[in-house]
Simulated scan of single mutants.
Amino acid sequence: MDLGLTKQVAVITGPAKGMGAAVTRAFAAEGCRLVLIGRDVAAIEPVAQEVRAAGGEAIIVPCDITDGKACNAAVVEAKAAFGGRIDILVNVAGGSGPIGKTGWETSEEEFDEIVDLNMRGCFNTMRACMPTMIEQRAGKIVNVGGTFGMRGRAGRMAYSASKWGLRGITKSFALEAGPYGININCVAPGMVDGPRFRGKVVPEMASRLGISEEAAVEKHAADYALKRVSTDEDVANACLFLASDVSRQITGVDLPVDGGWAML
């Protein structure tokens, strides 16, 4: 399906691996001109080379998204490279914070670090892109949140708080930006099949329950209505949908990509 994204300028944060790399490939396949931003340029380069090898356009802009001035400078560089436009922003970059700690065991430093990355980072990039989108009277912003920002989770208080906060940022920005023709939404992945799931979550469950790793995968999937674990590509496709005019009348929503867990 042609989503009408050819030649649109898409800024993607956290594009080096996992969901970020899948989002990058998906937007490249739709013909977007990509601005890939992050701190680790060397880690991003293989993904950018893959896009270019397939005939796509991609530049890398070094940027620490927790630094507002760096985000402003990244947008200036992006506009200089691609004709002065910013059509799409996809905020994938984020962290997981402390795992297995209660709220009272979580340190101030741990709390501040994950809130700074997951909330302030998205705020900074959105704030940097908004003047251009307002001037254009058009734009799409997709923030990647998480289902623990829709349901509380023991042992993940700091992460859950940061993703709940991101939902509030998304909804308030959506109300403020709507009159300018700008759509702002949030995609909320559940557990995603990948290195962390296979290398950490599954072995821990298998060890704790005394079952095989394959049985642990099946047990995990059994929690979902669709009885399967999401993939990076599932998340990327949801981002594409919300970044295109197919979803032109949707703004301020939280779209769970979790096989039916958070909302059921």
Rank of each mutant, 00 (worst) to 15 (best):
A221C: 11
F111L: 15
C63L: 07
T106Q: 14
K171P: 02
R208L: 14
S244Q: 03
A216K: 01
E77L: 13
E113L: 11
S96C: 06
G121A: 05
G168T: 09
A206N: 14
A238M: 01
S247I: 01
F111S: 05
P179A: 08
T251M: 04
L34C: 03
M126V: 15
A188F: 02
E135L: 12
G121L: 03
A26R: 14
T6P: 02
H220I: 10
I250Q: 02
K69I: 06
N118D: 07
K219V: 01
L3H: 09
T125G: 01
L264C: 06
A262Y: 12
V23C: 13
T24Q: 09
A70K: 09
R120A: 03
E135K: 15
G121I: 10
A128G: 10
G84A: 07
R120F: 13
S247P: 04
V192H: 03
P179R: 04
F111H: 10
V76R: 11
S230F: 00
V92C: 14
I211S: 02
L264F: 00
N72C: 08
L34A: 04
I59A: 01
G97W: 11
D258I: 09
Y159G: 06
R52K: 15
C71H: 05
G31C: 06
G139S: 03
D245V: 11
E113Y: 13
T231R: 06
A53R: 12
A221G: 06
P179C: 03
Y180H: 15
L34K: 07
I65S: 01
N185V: 10
T66Q: 15
V115Q: 03
R167F: 04
T170D: 04
A188N: 14
K17Q: 14
E214G: 13
D223C: 02
Y180A: 15
R39E: 07
D116A: 11
